[in-house]
Design a binder for these strands. Structure first.
Length: 284
DNA sequence: ACATCCACCTGCTCGC
DNA sequence: TGCGAGCAGGTGGATG
């Protein structure tokens, strides 16, 4: 479940269903799911068992559960990860990778991940005011962070010698934006993703970042974007922002603004979608 | 230091 | 019906 709105939907589900509960049992069912936890599965289980979850937090596409110790459970969903609140003892999902059972009789928290690009680890919290888990100190603030500074993000992007879409996807410049919302933001801002950042005005970069913030806020209000059952909230339900996408996945369909056929172009072993009229390719 | 790119996985769809 | 190719919402580490 990848980009910011989808991860925020999950965070809210964790805040509602998991915060305040004490972990009584942890099971790791696939070693790859905890590969970022270098001390290994036994250590992860030992550090988590008996802890009470005190908060569910997020930065960009990372989320974590704070506990009543200085440890937090850091999670990244990768391309296909899910955190599901499932009835205790109910049938295992096909790609169930880890399970947290709680001391009360309520539902379990399950990490399910088809492609295993995601994972869990237990991390020390940093002491600074942001209280980030140590491994994500390099992740920039996302546009929904109350302390997000648009001017700081604009400067960071313009300082980079690269193309605009690459910069939007760089989580150390601004976080939370992935392939869908980058394309949607570029369409709203009428910019092609191949525009060199160095030649863009501050106003232009500000425009595309504002568009990203808006489109992600709108997507969140719709429960996120979901094309299939892989992208669901903690209760297994899909969001429906896919109905509101203007370019992503819309190849050969008419642009909502000008009617031109939306084009699909290869980009980093994936795809970019844009309007050939509203978003002309830079020359060269 | 900084920019680029591919390996890491499973499963689905499409064309032959 | 089978089989290979191509594709999928992300990222860190290797490489230049």
């Amino acid at each position: 479940m990848p980009e910011l709105p989808e991860v925020e939907v999950v965070r809210r589900g964790l805040a509602e269903h998991v915060v305040g509960r004490r972990v009584s049992e942890v099971a790791v069912l696939h070693p790859r799911a905890i590969r970022r936890h270098l001390p290994g599965a036994h250590d992860l289980v030992a550090r988590l068992t008996g802890r009470t979850v005190t908060a569910a937090r997020r930065r960009g596409k990372y989320l974590w559960l704070e506990t009543d110790s200085s440890d937090a459970v850091l999670a990244h969903l990768g391309m296909s990860g899910q955190l599901l609140v499932s009835d205790r003892g109910s049938a295992a999902q096909k790609h169930l990778r880890a399970r947290l059972v709680f001391a009360d009789a309520g539902p379990e928290l399950r990490f399910v991940d088809q492609r295993t690009f995601g994972g869990l680890s237990v991390e020390q919290m940093r002491g600074d005011p942001d209280r980030l888990p140590a491994p994500i100190a390099h992740i920039a603030r996302d546009p929904m962070d109350p302390r997000f500074d648009l001017d700081v993000a604009v400067s960071a992007i313009r300082r980079r010698r690269t193309e605009l879409k690459r910069a939007l996807l760089d989580q150390t410049l601004v976080s939370g934006i992935g392939n869908i919302y980058a394309d949607e933001a570029l369409w709203r801002a009428r910019l092609h993703g191949a525009r060199p950042t160095a030649t863009l005005s501050r106003a232009a970069v500000r425009g595309v970042l504002s568009a990203a913030s808006e489109v992600m806020t709108e997507a969140l209000a719709q429960g996120g974007t979901s094309f299939d059952a892989l992208y669901v909230n903690v209760n297994g339900n899909s969001g429906y922002f896919d109905r509101s996408l203007n370019v992503y996945g819309q190849a050969d369909r008419p642009c909502a603004r000008c009617g031109s056929s939306i084009r699909r172009e290869p980009f980093m072993n994936r795809s970019s979608y844009s309007c050939p009229t509203c978003q002309p390719r830079p020359r060269g």
